[in-house]
Design a protein around this nucleic acid. Structure first.
Length: 487
DNA sequence: ATCGGCTCGCGCAA
DNA sequence: TGCGCGAAGCCGAT
């Protein structure tokens, strides 16, 4: 079976594969789906090569920051899908939801001890780098991490790019000269895996398989997580729902995607929550668009490389969507990967942005709101309040309005650093796609990253690109949206 | 309604 | 070394 490409692999524990191991262990922590997954594909490759069964461990602990009913329910709905999917395969699937803080400690090590090799997902940002570093320091078993988040590996280019224009040009050149290999849709297709026969009852007695149905039917209340951030029932998690939404987007929305900035048109893909939890993959989504549109490298237009449209030789809607799912999303992943210490910090913003914000830090603020007032959508700006209410209720904000949502907070906080911290807090607490490299990318864009200086210099904002609710209201068709989320 | 000015710095051509 | 150019900006002049 096909392994993941070398450019997507990193060896975290460089021990030889344990030949008397009983199974290959896939530690599913970020790409939580059974198809279109380089990580799972790589684990299947090992299992076939060594002639041993495959065990998939999908854990969810309750100690991660911002853990709440909202995110737990989303992940657990995915566990239900994955359980049903693997039930019809030789793979042994073990979902584990920690009942109390620390209860899951030791589970990975106990299984890894008996495995030939452990394969997992490589994700930058948030808790993942620490999680992997800790695993690497504890395990003796060979540990390989697979970068399976995007259509391009995070190591695709030998340099980092700090502007979309330059990153976009590199992407266009790559797809024209040597398009990246997609993951196999079903990594188990044609795989001759032995049935799982290891006796792991000592381990599953101590760390029993989660019952997703019971957890979703009231069981979350027993967990030590934030119950004030509620489940978003209109957006259930899971690979099944993700695939349904991807198909709906292709069938019904892509043609009109150029109208995406108008909230009332409702043609955005809305896929970011599922992308964040790995219920659908970046490569899966990008190739679905490319295949549907008959992409061929020889149809690309080199004279349009680096430009926002025209380079791919596809429909306007498709090109606009590839901008989102490849250029902007993967630029953020690349930044997080190359700048792990800085990509989610105020101090990681470009020098010109920090300088101009610093020069205006003492400018008078007309209103200062508390974090609670912002969280409860109690400002004097009706569009901002509506955006915040959409975030509270639906766990998302319409993508154009989300920029305005970020920009306005700068005027209402004591310092640009406080603005940054509060945006991160609100976004990570409530947004289903929060805590994602792409989400940090959005917040940082609000404060100048990937952008340039704009005149004229304004109070508080300095040369940071300025946006106003009044212009937004004038330019966008958002009456229906406002009615829905307004006071 | 459309247009220019505002402003910075990267990557590439020269 | 100079030049072109840029996620969805805003505002005032025409």
């Amino acid at each position: 079976m096909t392994p993941a490409p070398d450019s997507r692999l990193s060896v975290l524990v460089d021990a030889p594969v344990r030949e008397d191991g009983e199974f290959v262990l896939y530690w599913m922590i970020a790409e939580r789906r059974p198809t279109h997954s380089f990580g799972l594909q790589h684990a299947v490759h090992h299992a076939c090569a060594w002639g041993v069964p495959l065990l998939v461990l999908e854990p969810l602990d309750c100690t991660y920051r911002w853990a709440s009913d909202r995110f737990h329910a989303f992940v657990i709905a995915g566990m239900r899908d994955n359980r049903d999917h693997f039930a019809a395969t030789p793979v042994h699937y073990h979902p584990y939801v920690e009942p109390e803080a620390g209860a899951g400690q030791g589970l990975l090590a106990a299984l890894a001890e008996r495995a030939c090799v452990v394969v997992t997902d490589e994700r930058p940002a948030y808790r993942f780098p620490d999680l992997l570093a800790r695993a690497a320091s504890v395990l003796d078993t060979r540990l390989e991490a697979v970068d399976g988040a995007g259509v391009l590996p995070m190591r695709a280019f030998d340099k980092g790019y700090v502007r979309a224009y330059d990153y976009r040009r590199a992407v266009h050149k790559r797809f024209c000269k040597a398009p990246p290999v997609p993951p196999r849709p079903d990594p188990l297709d044609g795989a001759d895996l032995p049935a799982f026969d290891a006796d792991i009852s000592d381990i599953t007695t101590r760390w029993p398989a989660a019952d997703p149905d019971a957890l979703l039917d009231g069981g979350l209340a027993d967990l030590p997580i934030d119950h004030d951030v509620g489940v978003v029932s209109s957006r259930p998690g899971g690979p099944t729902e993700a695939t349904r939404r991807l198909e709906r987007f292709l069938d019904q929305r892509l043609d009109r995607y150029t109208e995406r900035n108008h909230p009332d048109e409702d043609v955005a893909s809305g896929l970011s929550p599922w992308l964040h939890f790995g219920h659908v993959g970046g490569a899966q989504v990008a190739w679905a668009i490319l295949d549907a549109e008959g992409f061929k490298p020889e149809r690309m237009n080199p004279d349009r490389f680096a430009k926002q449209e025209g380079a791919w030789g596809l429909s306007a809607g498709a090109e606009a969507f590839l901008e989102e799912v490849i250029t902007w999303r993967e630029l953020s992943f690349q930044t997080a990967f190359l700048e792990p210490g800085d990509h989610a910090r105020y101090e990681g913003l470009p020098d010109w942005a920090q300088k101009t914000l610093d020069e205006h830090r003492d400018d008078e603020r007309e209103h200062l709101y508390t974090l609670d007032e912002l969280a409860r959508a109690e400002t004097d700006d009706e569009i901002w309040n509506a955006a915040q209410r959409q975030l509270l209720e639906e766990g998302i904000i319409h993508n154009y309005v989300r920029m305005l949502w970020g920009k306005r907070v700068l005027a209402w906080t004591e310092s640009p650093e406080q603005c940054f911290d509060w945006l991160v807090e609100l976004n990570n607490r409530y947004a289903l796609d929060g805590r994602d490299p792409n989400s940090y990318g959005g917040i940082c864009w609000v404060l100048g990253r990937y952008d340039r200086a704009w005149g004229p210099e304004r109070p508080i904002y300095g040369k940071i690109r300025y946006m106003t609710s009044q212009s937004t209201k004038r330019k966008l068709r958002l009456g229906g949206w406002l009615e829905r989320f307004g006071e």
